[in-house]
Design a protein around this nucleic acid. Structure first.
Lengths: 243, 243
DNA sequence: ACCTGAACACCGTTCAAGT
DNA sequence: ACCTGAACACCGTTCAAGT
């Protein structure tokens, strides 16, 4: 056995893939896309990178931090549509951008939707949303509450969609029939009555419905704030807004 | 060493805690409440029950099924308030019941909010919600969509709350000041402007705001369906409803 | 500065063997 | 029917030692 055949030691000679937080996140994402979050281990990620598992600790604090890195990368690289000046259309645009992103990496999406990210990777969507709400005449404090309501609704909707997976969709006729039968025999009157509707799930239609629902509420609030013109608020607008 | 001091073999002699899916779920919940979901392992749960880890496989299929059992137990034992006949108040009641439950076991809540439960443990809240919506004159199909919108919003809101934990609350003045400063220097105009509001988080106020927001939308839809009187719908109501 | 060998204290799960 | 011993193929992470 020559030296070349023995496992390397020290820094890689040359041409070896540079290890970095981003490269590690990318390798982990690749594993998640194929085999799910459970397939991520320090060892499996290292294997993808052709490196020893312990080397990762030079770039991420621990496994949790590695998963944060994946979530940050997904959230940070998200592209938002240009606002057109209509509140409803612009918020809808952000909502759809989120969904598009989530569906590009459905198995990684729960990471983004579920983790409490301490970094500032996710601030671009926040800025965009606040901008739309503020331009529509919403005081800062209310804008933050509405933002949080929107985020919660998007989170819940997307989380359900990506976790339901392709099995709970509209395609699997046999599964739908089975669920429907079970619901009809649940002994619960309303559930039985709605069995046909409960058994099937069109995720796009459901997403659009829920987004429409919450945007009804948001735009109604915006109209109310505009009529009030901030009465009783400490926050004031410096100029008459509206895009 | 006498026989009594050697580890047992075969079924426990007597008085030993009966192993069961419920007992296992309960033991796991105890661990989660104290040390979080990560503290759950087949071995740690078995230790709580004074039993070998492999014995658990006689009552749960695997670790995933064990966690499902915890989620089912939490969801199944939830008590819902009696409806009073007012849609908004009754839906609010269900929302608050969910939150109360989640806050009783904050570290276990993500399990319930996140898992795709195949069992029928969670149907009671579904029945209750459908009943409220149907009694208010909502056709079955729309009722299911509204139900899903409500669930998504509650899920997203509660998930954020339990995951934020006590550190991201209103109590930690130093943390708020730190976050605020960071947001002010983010380089994003709207984020900086709203830094004070973004840095703090009153979970009860936020929950109430979001629930209020979505209920505005739901009640507006109900009013619209009532005026339409189901025009263009295949679903019809057998009697004039409204509680 | 970045990598690895050796090592530690864990995991989930199978399967045959006990009672 | 329900339990365990022995065993397998894994984990995350530390720390000293290499280059």
């Amino acid at each position: 056995m020559t030296a070349a055949h023995r496992p390397r030691r020290g820094r890689p000679p040359r041409g070896a893939p540079q290890l970095s937080r981003d490269a590690i996140a990318e390798a982990a994402l690749k594993l998640i896309d194929v085999d799910g979050t459970d397939a991520v281990s320090m060892r499996s990620v290292a294997r993808v990178l052709g490196v020893d598992a312990k080397s990762l600790y030079n770039h991420v604090a621990d496994k949790d931090d590695l998963l944060d890195a994946v979530a940050e990368q997904l959230l940070g690289s998200m592209r938002l549509p240009e606002p057109v000046g209509d509140v409803r259309a612009d918020l809808l645009g952000i909502g759809h951008a989120f969904r598009r992103r989530a569906l590009e990496h459905p198995r990684a999406a729960p990471l983004v939707l579920t983790r409490q990210l301490a970094s500032f990777e996710g601030l671009a969507p926040v800025e965009a949303t606040l901008n739309i709400l503020r331009a529509a005449g919403c005081p800062t404090s209310e804008a933050v509450h509405l933002l949080r309501g929107l985020v919660a609704t998007l989170t819940g909707t997307l989380l359900r969609e990506v976790q339901a997976g392709p099995t709970y969709g509209t395609a699997d006729a046999a599964g739908i029939a089975r669920r429907r039968a079970a619901l009809e025999h649940s002994g619960l009157a309303r559930v039985a009555e709605a069995a046909a509707e409960l058994a099937r799930f069109d995720s796009t239609a459901e997403y659009d419905f829920t987004l429409d629902l919450i945007l009804d509420a948001v735009t109604a609030r915006l109209a109310a704030y505009r009529n009030d013109d901030g009465a009783g608020q400490t926050e004031r607008l410096s100029e008459t807004p509206q895009g």
